[in-house]
Design a protein around this nucleic acid. Structure first.
Lengths: 244, 244
DNA sequence: CGACCGTTTGAGTGCGGTCAAAAGAAGTGG
DNA sequence: CCACTTCTTTTGACCGCACTCAAACGGTCG
């Protein structure tokens, strides 16, 4: 164990050298704890830092002029969070802790060292960023061209597949600490309609709910109605430079 | 002039060294021409190559099971196209030429050299990828939380701002070679409703149309109703490593 | 135990979709 | 260069999915 959560995630795609692991562990020198509901950073705040999410769930969102909210992405342990700070002086989105979280902030300048001394890690970072971009385009198609029922289904599937990345033995159920309001803000629906769609999925036997635990009964059929593709299974790392 | 279209784009953010320019020009060694309407690459094709778009417009899209199409992004001269190929063996989207185009394909392995020998360029590539990711999240909020009228307005504004990146003296008008069907597929609307919304924008005096030329009469008000932010104006390159 | 937040359900509305048809523009072949 | 076809735009009438508003119910945390 290197103690680096991010290294652990990256090793799913590629075995890392010791030097690389040490470099990555630098990003997690500082660990901070935040309570459920804490706003870690607001849109337009200065974006000095990027974060490694070590434990707990977060999400990023934007508020529109009319007061409505769009949740841009859920974040799970092992994720790099607030990466848009790498491109802009001011944060483009807000970050909230959905559960209690352990978060490791690092200055974006720390990436500079990575790019200079660890070209393979930098390239892997690029690959992962591309995968996230593709995941966003999947959601774009979901919001633009699929029904409310399909959007809710897609959110559930995306969530379980991403949880599986860091936790192999999840099976077909997981705890979902999102309110229906939040599911609505992620899928572009109202809380009321999310409720109805969840009930429909239950009635169709596709999922089961008890409290905030979701059981996915028929993953294949759910994926078909949601037009969902699991993008996280396999990345192409064949072209990366040699490790240092 | 280096002859590299991509280098020219990057110099808007950062003056490049001669060595860097030479490295970038490698990516444009091969230039191919395609006619308007040509499908350059289909979803699930092998994604060996990434492209520099030298001239003309393109777009990337996905088809859903029910036959509907979501246009994921428009591409303009100076853009890197098909970058998702960097992360996946098979293409995640299809690429089509909207006008006649000049396109420079390069193997994704060529990026490896960039990461090893030009850390600053690699980091700049990372920055630009992040900016594109943010642009996608803006569209996500647009599709998820804004009206049809606002979505069409946002598409027009995003287009003109991106054209301005490579062509300073565009003013407030541009030629839009998209059909209303295509605008619909980009904004998650039907062609019929796009037509209606365009007419509304004209009636409100916000834009003027003649043939396929768009004049933006009141950019500020249009941006307000569209909830639009120009993300391309300024990127934070302060943290990048030293050039080589 | 009460206050609060989230879930659930019902009734009615409206934005954007669907279907259809006609007019206009652009490409194609003789 | 014209006749024909096909694609695109435009407009009208109607429909339905998802939204709004409202109220009741249930869980949870001071």
């Amino acid at each position: 164990m290197t103690g680096s959560c991010f290294a652990e995630r990256l090793e799913h795609y590629l075995p890392l050298t010791d030097r690389e692991k040490v470099a990555l562990s630098r990003l997690e020198d500082i660990e901070r704890h935040y309570r459920r509901g804490t706003v870690i950073r607001r849109e337009n705040d200065r974006a000095h830092d990027i974060f490694v999410l070590r434990a707990g769930w977060m999400y990023s969102y934007v508020l529109l002029d009319d007061g409505s909210r769009q949740i841009l992405r859920l974040h799970f342990p092992g994720d790099l969070v607030g990466t848009s700070g790498g491109a802009f002086v001011a944060a483009t989105d807000s970050l909230v802790a959905l559960t209690d979280v352990k978060l490791c902030p690092f200055e974006k300048g720390a990436l500079s060292v990575l790019f200079e001394e660890h070209p393979r890690l930098a390239a892997l970072l690029f690959v992962i960023t591309q995968a996230e971009r593709v995941s966003l385009t999947d959601r774009l198609a979901s919001l633009g061209r699929t029904s409310a029922r399909a959007r809710v289904a897609a959110l559930l599937l995306d969530t379980i597949d991403r949880l599986r990345l860091m936790n192999r033995d999840i099976g077909n159920s997981f705890h979902l600490p999102l309110t229906q309001e939040e599911i609505g803000d992620a899928t572009g629906l109202t809380a009321v309609h999310v409720n109805r769609m969840m009930r429909v999925l239950v009635e169709e036997g596709l999922i089961t709910r008890s409290n905030s635990t979701i059981i996915i009964n028929d993953e294949e059929r759910l994926a078909r109605i949601a037009n969902y593709i699991n993008r996280y299974a396999e990345l192409d790392t064949s072209w990366l430079p040699a490790p240092r």
